[in-house]
Nucleic acid binder design. Structure first.
Lengths: 251, 251
DNA sequence: TCCATGTTTGACCAAATGGTCCAAGTTCGA
DNA sequence: TCGAACTTGGACCATTTGGTCAAACATGGA
């Protein structure tokens, strides 16, 4: 804390106003995070002291614990105490690193953003359409297998109406999305792809692949498997790729 | 209340144990609700007094308000006060009709179950495969348009790991699911459908159609439309049907 | 009309929870 | 080695919130 002395006056409890007041900064932070997807440039990765390094490690541990808890319980359902416990530290200590639960939540969201956006940004016009689509499905499905919590966290945020992500969706994501739609459109014009609607194709691939993370409970109950089973993973990837490329109608 | 006098002793506050203790009853209730999908038999619809009728109306209003709030905020995020306000009654009065927030939540879930399961249960072997699939997509998509809150509520429940729905998933839904998989399998064996994996086909259709309700915020931000636009609804239905039936590869 | 029964609510309670504070460590550069 | 800055957590506080209660209020059947 820079200057604890100035805080002797009891700060009035933040209420509904706080969210509105902070949302500006939050939005900017998330948007910035979204824009730097891809370039893993560790700009400020200059040599750090042991202490700072340890701090980074602990910070990462907190974010990991927070992701796990938020993804299951949601922002409201998760308690700071529970997250702190999951991270193996005290609640007060957690609040030392992240000024508030909301701030922690935003940090987690921010961290997940790059993972979430990565597959689509690797989708380029260079490849053969079928290969590019298969690769996108594969990458997104791998995401659902390796980072289901990230997928769930974003799903949770969408279900809330995406209050924090809206600026990201409308800005950086929208840009990528439009660009990829253009790529698909070009393929269609070139006769390399059937006359599909580009936006719906992207939505469809997202929906199909994220489903296995977000609805894992249902998949497990009905199919008895999850993506962590190698066989099921392969089978799913094949089924989805085949569906998207060729559909179900016999040729 | 049957006998308020017996309650003079302050009941110890329910804690974590409560959920576990009640989950048995809850499970049975939900399973029963799932099993009666389809037969809208109003068995106990004998003539009621004005008072009882008004009661039904109010009860329905509460459920409606609760659905709206729960679907947006989740079980933890929703406050009883907020739901009561949305229903236009006092919190205490709401608690008069539903003994606890959890009980209300279960009642809402129960009510949504039939809507949620209906489309799949109407999926039969009688029709032509392509027609049946198109109809299923249409019905599910109409669900996403007309009752997005129901879809979102179930999505939230799945994201939590489906603690309350698991028995339903493992029981009644599993039965329907397996039956429909068999139908699809028969079509394949008869050469009327490509060699798709039946469970994945059903998952895919669910994923594709529910996406437009659950991720409406994203769809709106990226495509600028929602299913309530007639044109977008038609376009989406066509796109999804075409994708599932014929895929994207040019023929 | 009258009252037993069902309905409604304001006041209240106790637990949970987000967040603050301070005093006691710990670390690191000078 | 020494002190300034950084960490850590126990105690504490104010608010929110699920739930209870008693008393007032409707209502419909006898």
């Amino acid at each position: 804390m820079t200057d604890p002395a100035t805080k002797t006056v009891k700060a009035p409890r933040k209420t509904a106003a706080k969210a509105a007041a902070k949302s500006g900064q939050v939005a900017r932070k998330l948007v910035k995070a979204a824009q730097t997807v891809g370039d893993d440039s560790p700009v400020d990765n200059f040599p750090k002291g042991r202490r700072a390094q340890a701090g980074e490690v602990r910070k990462a541990a907190i974010l990991k614990a927070a992701l796990a808890v938020f993804a299951r319980q949601g922002l409201d359902g998760a308690s700071v105490e529970a997250i702190a416990q999951a991270a193996g530290i005290s609640k007060a200590n957690l609040l030392y690193y992240h000024p508030s639960k909301e701030a922690l939540y935003v940090a987690v969201l921010e961290q997940g953003l790059s993972l979430w956006l990565a597959p689509l940004s690797r989708f380029t016009a260079e490849e053969d359409p079928a290969d590019a689509i298969a690769a996108l499905i594969g990458a997104k499905l791998a995401m659902s297998r390796d980072h289901p919590e990230v997928s769930r966290l974003f799903a949770l945020e969408m279900l809330r109406g995406a209050p924090l992500l809206k600026p990201v969706l409308a800005g950086p994501l929208r840009a990528v999305f439009d660009a990829k739609c253009a790529v698909i459109g070009a393929w269609i014009d070139g006769g390399k792809l059937g006359r599909v609607d580009p936006p719906h194709l992207i939505f469809s691939i997202w929906a199909l692949t994220q489903h296995y993370a977000d609805f894992a409970a249902q998949v497990r109950a009905l199919a008895g498997k999850s993506l962590s089973d190698k066989a099921f993973m392969d089978e799913t990837q094949e089924a989805l790729t085949a569906l998207v490329l060729d559909g179900v109608r016999p040729r």
